[in-house]
């Protein structure tokens, strides 16, 4: 019996048979997935987390990277995920929370390159927490253990800047000189040497001299170029001293004692303020020197060979 394609039975039954066939096999095609279920693999989850990170949505990125680590603990990218968790905390200013994930990567990751990146980032984290000694310790460790000269040089370079921040100019100069000759140009060592020699030209005040001069109320402030403060300190302390003297002289010990107590506080405050002013003057002067040094010796992307340095285009942006 011949069946023609335009036969009614063909038109009715073929689509029904096709429908039944695909309805039966569709669970097989979908695997064990139940209707309405979504399956995400490790690669998708990692990309999802990285998407948030690149959009600077750091808290969401942290949550998704942690989800990635929880559901795919054996994935080779787990250390990268931990590193990015630390980086996300760092970029969002939560430096204390950044320490643990970065430390874990720095200590345990089998990837040497990733370990070094984590160490450098960890050193910057400590710098932002003003824990300069920990930063120097980490950088020294990198300088001693790194196999590539450019990484050792970067550690010396960074350590030099930390010593500059601590106003230890000579030690900073020594660290810059430890950079290997072939990398003097990328790290602009000659420009650094030249600018470091200018440091003595920046004015400084002697805090002890400021304190000594404050024996005469206001003189310490005047030495620190705070003339309004000096005038007020002189007038107030002189007035209080005279008032206390007059009170005691007139037999009014209670009032004299009260004025003397207040006067003693302002006299001590005058000395303390002058010493603090000298320190603040020196701090501001040193910061101007650092700003000038950064402007004159900035390391740029174009001179650091790609894939040879850890931080491409490293700039001193943590001071």
């Amino acid at each position: 019996m011949k069946i023609k394609l335009y036969d009614t039975r063909v038109i009715l039954w073929v689509p029904m048979l096709l429908f039944l066939f695909f309805w039966v096999i569709s669970p097989v095609l979908a695997g064990n997935q139940k209707p309405g279920e979504l399956t995400i693999n490790a690669e998708q989850q990692y990309r999802f987390a990285m998407g948030y990170f690149k959009q600077n949505q750091y808290f969401k990125a942290i949550a998704e990277f942690e989800r990635f680590i929880y559901f795919f603990p054996d994935n080779p990218k787990v250390d990268e995920a931990k590193y990015h968790i630390g980086l996300a905390y760092y970029e969002s200013g939560r430096f204390r929370e950044a320490i643990d994930p970065l430390s874990e990567v720095a200590e345990k990751s089998p990837d040497q390159h990733l370990r070094t990146r984590a160490l450098f980032r960890l050193s910057e984290t400590f710098i932002n927490l003003a824990d300069y000694q920990s930063a120097i310790t980490l950088l020294d460790h990198v300088a001693e253990t790194a196999k590539k000269p450019v990484i050792r040089d970067e550690a010396h370079y960074r350590a030099g800047w930390v010593y500059l921040k601590l106003e230890q100019i000579e030690i900073a100069r020594q660290r810059f000189r430890m950079i290997s000759p072939q990398n003097h140009h990328p790290f602009r060592v000659q420009e650094l040497e030249k600018e470091l020699s200018q440091e003595k030209l920046y004015p400084k005040k002697n805090p002890r001299l400021a304190g000594f001069l404050s024996i005469l109320p206001g003189a310490g402030f005047a030495y620190c170029e705070r003339y309004q403060d000096a005038l007020v300190a002189f007038l107030l302390n002189t007035g209080l001293i005279l008032a206390a003297y007059e009170s005691f002289d007139s037999g009014n010990e209670a009032l004299g004692g009260l004025i003397a107590f207040v006067g003693a506080g302002f006299y001590a405050g005058n000395i303390y303020g002058a010493v603090a002013s000298a320190h603040k003057y020196n701090r501001d002067s040193h910061q101007r020197f650092l700003d000038q040094l950064k402007a004159q010796t900035q390391v740029t992307l174009s001179v650091v060979p790609e894939n040879q340095g850890i931080m491409l285009g490293f700039q001193v942006n943590f001071f």
Partner: peptide, 18 residues
């Protein structure tokens, strides 16, 4: 107390510029 007195001496004067 000493820091308080220091602050009262400096308040509203040279510190505003510095």
């Amino acid at each position: 107390w000493v820091m308080t007195c220091d602050r009262l001496l400096r308040c509203g004067r040279d510190e505003l510029k510095l």
